[in-house]
Amino acid sequence: MIVPQVCSWLENTRMAAAIRSSTWLFPTIESIHVLAVTLVVGSILMFDLRLLGIASRDRSVTDLHKEILPWTWAAFACAVVAGSLLFSSDATKYYENGPFRFKMLTLFLIGLNTAIFELGAFRGVSRWNTDKKTPLPARLAGGISIVLWILVVGFGRWIGFTKQ
């Protein structure tokens, strides 16, 4: 297996050592991570609720897609960068942590769900763009996304209580 070796290389970099030994770096990066995650979850929720026909029903799906998702992606990029820095500080322990693995698995499923939506139902959005009730695949994508993002936050928080 190559992953444990990558982890041990990562946590021995000077950057990882700096994050570990500083009193303020870890909490500061963690604050940025949490801020970014809340923006990802809150903004994606707006879009998902539109897909479910619960909120923003008077706005077209493509309008919201254009208006909200660029913010989601920008916040997601920040969350990934900050999260990777946190991971590097103690890579092996995070890699061995159960909730961390579940969190990564859930993120993978979110990627899958997003890809299926973008390449599937969203291709034909012009047919239901302003409908209050969207087609079943779109509603499914929205509902699954909400559940998976809640799990990401839950597993993320759980890491802090289980990591050795």
Binding site: V37, T38, L39, V41, G42, S43, L45, M46, V153
Partner: peptide, 9 residues
């Protein structure tokens, strides 16, 4: 945290 996500967004 989920509540904070909704409020801050």
């Amino acid at each position: 945290i989920l509540c904070i996500a909704i409020v801050i967004s």
